[in-house]
Design a protein around this nucleic acid. Structure first.
Length: 420
RNA sequence: GUGAGCGUAGCUCAGCUGGUGGUAGCACCGGGUUGUGGCCUCGGAGGUCGUGGGUUCAAGUCCCAUCGCUCACCCCA
């Protein structure tokens, strides 16, 4: 039996890594533009951390975590909890009143894989900690939008406010009562959701449930004045920046720690998955984890989803040459000569390669082409005797003789100049 | 956890009502070009038809089981 990767865990092969590096590079660039600094945290944490932050009754905690029960450890299903743990553990708030952080890396959830969803997946995660200012919310959203824009990915932005610890519980109670009054008309899933996650009923795709949802009390109208004011200011900021969005009063969150502002970057191009990125405020989380009473807001973007969209929307970055110079050696002497030359070129930072199998020139040219080499230097034993090689520009097909030198240091300098 | 679909070359796939595995495309190797890549052309190599059992004179094809993958539900980035 051949050993293969386990279900939901994917290899990212070299040709695709270029795409991933493109995404990462652009993300770091944009995040740094907003003053975010990278933080790297462990993949394994105490199970308790996720239970306390994400919420005991959430799907993620109840059935999706990779946990080692005997050790009490869990592979992180998301990044925010770990970042907050690190934030508290190292007292980062003392250094700077507002901390702006980002993290990039793999997350793990034991769900059934499907398009745009894997068991090991990767997220770009951002957090701004220490401010309740609604302009911070808008700034963070604008950063996500800017990244998507610059990647050339088209999404729609939806925002909502899900209230705070003061106003959400009463609303939730009101909603449950309403749903109970219409219980018989709800679909089977929603009958269950009424008690597990009543807000999710508002988001049900079934038409009958949608009709009922229209009559349900609206969270946006029920939230407290403070939350309303905050949300209005977020919208005013987005308006000033010219960022287009739609209000979605049915948008809810799967993790318990979210408060007030929530938002999602959405697409129709990912099969059943619609969210490319999502986030929101989590004002009680840090305190709940035993840290100072500091607010925060963040978002995560799914890198697999970004990569899929880049491919689908035909925005694959065109790749440059991946090799500066390929040395085609013909004959034993020239092979040894080229070996020395390749070594010296590489020490100068030039990307250089050659073939040792003594294949035909045609075969070696093919190889140079596969390497996407900018130049090829052809050196046979004859050339070595006459001290004149041939250098070929692979894109223009121009060839020129080049004086060879027994002093390969000199020659490698000359070649380095040509190739640069 | 539930449902549906699919497993044939490294990849993408033909293979009809069972009757000798495809000159298939991409990729790979070599020749045409006696020392020049991409395009063209000719040739070559590459397979336990996922696995196990059953039906049959005969199974890639039909039946059963099993493993794997994919998509969808739930839920989520």
């Amino acid at each position: 039996m051949k050993i293969q990767a386990i279900n939901g865990f994917k290899d990212i092969l070299p040709e695709n890594v270029l795409l991933w590096q493109h995404i990462e590079k652009k993300a770091r660039e944009v995040f740094q533009r907003f003053g975010l600094r990278e933080i790297r945290i462990p993949i394994l944490e105490k199970t308790e951390l996720f239970v306390r932050s994400i919420g005991e009754a959430t799907d993620v905690v109840e059935k999706e975590m990779y946990t080692f029960p005997e050790a009490g450890l869990t592979m992180r299903p998301e990044a925010t909890a770990g970042i907050m743990r690190a934030f508290i553990e190292h007292g980062l708030h003392v250094q700077q009143p507002i901390q702006r952080l980002y993290a990039i890396g793999p997350m793990f959830r034991h769900e059934r894989p499907q398009k745009g969803r894997q068991r090991q997946f990767h997220q770009l995660d951002t957090e701004i900690i220490g401010s309740v200012d609604p302009q911070i919310d808008a700034e963070l959203i604008s950063m996500g939008q800017m990244l998507l824009d610059e990647l050339g990915i088209t999404t729609s932005l939806e925002i909502n406010s899900i209230g705070c610890s003061q106003c959400r519980p009463p609303y939730r109670q009101k909603l449950v009562s309403f749903l109970e009054s219409r219980h018989d008309d709800l679909c089977e899933d929603c009958k269950r959701r009424t008690y597990t996650n009543p807000l999710r009923v508002l988001d049900c795709k079934k038409s009958t449930c949608r009709e009922i949802a229209k009559d349900a009390p609206s969270l946006l109208e029920e939230v407290c004045d403070n939350c309303k004011g905050h949300f209005n200011q977020v919208q005013a900021s987005l308006d000033r920046m010219g960022i287009t969005y739609t209000l979605n009063r049915f948008m809810v969150r799967g993790l318990d720690y979210y408060t007030q502002t929530t938002f999602e970057f959405l697409t129709d191009d990912l099969g059943a998955q619609s969210a490319v990125g999502a986030g929101g405020r989590y004002d009680g989380l840090i305190e709940q984890l035993g840290g100072p009473a500091l607010p925060g807001i963040g978002f995560a973007m799914g890198m697999e989803r970004l990569a899929l969209l880049l491919e689908q929307q035909n925005n694959r970055p065109h790749m440059d040459s991946e090799m500066d110079l390929f040395l085609a050696a013909l004959g034993p002497q020239s092979m040894d000569y080229c070996e020395t030359l390749v070594h010296k070129l590489r020490k100068k930072g030039i990307r250089a390669a050659m073939d040792y199998s003594g294949r035909s020139l045609k075969a070696q040219m093919k190889q140079a082409n596969r390497f996407k080499a900018s130049f090829t230097l052809i050196i046979g034993d004859n050339e070595l005797l006459e001290q004149t090689g041939i250098i070929r520009n692979m894109s223009t097909q121009e060839q020129q003789p080049i004086g060879l030198d027994t002093n390969t240091d000199q020659l490698s300098n000359v070649l380095a100049e040509i190739v640069r």
